[in-house]
Design a protein around this nucleic acid. Sequence first.
DNA 1: CTTAATGCAAAAATTTTGCATGATT
DNA 2: AATCATGCAAAATTTTTGCATTAAG
Lengths: 148, 148
Amino acid sequence: MDREYFTQFLREKGLKVTNQRIGVLEVLSGSEDSHLTAEEIYDVVRVRYPEIGLATVYRTIQLFLRLHLIDQINLDDGCVRYEMRTEDAGGRHHHHHLICLSCGKVFSFDGDLLETLEEYILDRDGFQVVDHKVQLYGYCKECQKNME
Amino acid sequence: MDREYFTQFLREKGLKVTNQRIGVLEVLSGSEDSHLTAEEIYDVVRVRYPEIGLATVYRTIQLFLRLHLIDQINLDDGCVRYEMRTEDAGGRHHHHHLICLSCGKVFSFDGDLLETLEEYILDRDGFQVVDHKVQLYGYCKECQKNME
DNA sequence: CTTAATGCAAAAATTTTGCATGATT
DNA sequence: AATCATGCAAAATTTTTGCATTAAG
């Protein structure tokens, strides 16, 4: 998400473009694989915008969620995390996670995994799937080596 | 999970079989599709065991999670929920969720969805998947009718 | 100038912990 | 009898909210 587009996007909706909002956006779109908690976002944004308050971070997160700029993710480590949403042409996001049960590292991967399954469910149950979230648990290369 | 097995299971591990633990077990294995929060479990258990405290419910949940009797699930409604784990022969659980974006109802389904994908990931990344969690978002039959 | 957003601090909500008491083995 | 689990209340987290102030359009 580039800053031009973001500014445009907020203005269209009558929302104001503030340093705090830009700061949170930059942190979240900064590192590719950042799955940050609210507190972590706060700590990073504060480096550049020391005046920001934690409440603003929470309010900004709520806003970004409503605007579908970010997704909430739950990696079962007891924290609520957030990451930028990446959408494909159809407005679906296919960003999934490989979670190592041993070291806890999280690897991301994209792709539309479940097309055939989704068709099957529509046929069988009449439930129309428009998005999905997949988490895979296992052991990464590194940890497998250490287990030998 | 039946009570005989549960009693046996706890005793083997040197854990005590208390009314509170039985109560929480009964609530969670009671209704097939119960995705309950800690508070909800507390409220239901209290009907039969009014003496139970909320702290005990939390401690029991932590215990059951450690014993892999239950799973934590996150349906993106801002609550942490729990449900009984159902395992197949290989010790994997394949219990997934269809979440209606309109009415919020949750439908469960079982099945091993991702076998081929998991093989592919092992080949490509060397990451060995042992379990997965899938959430599908969309619109249930009922809500589709109401949209017409 | 008008409206929206912020910071702060207080409040609410959620989860964990210490410790004396009570139940299970 | 020994140990483990519980209840209660207090503490630690995490998240939300009210309100006066500040910044954006």
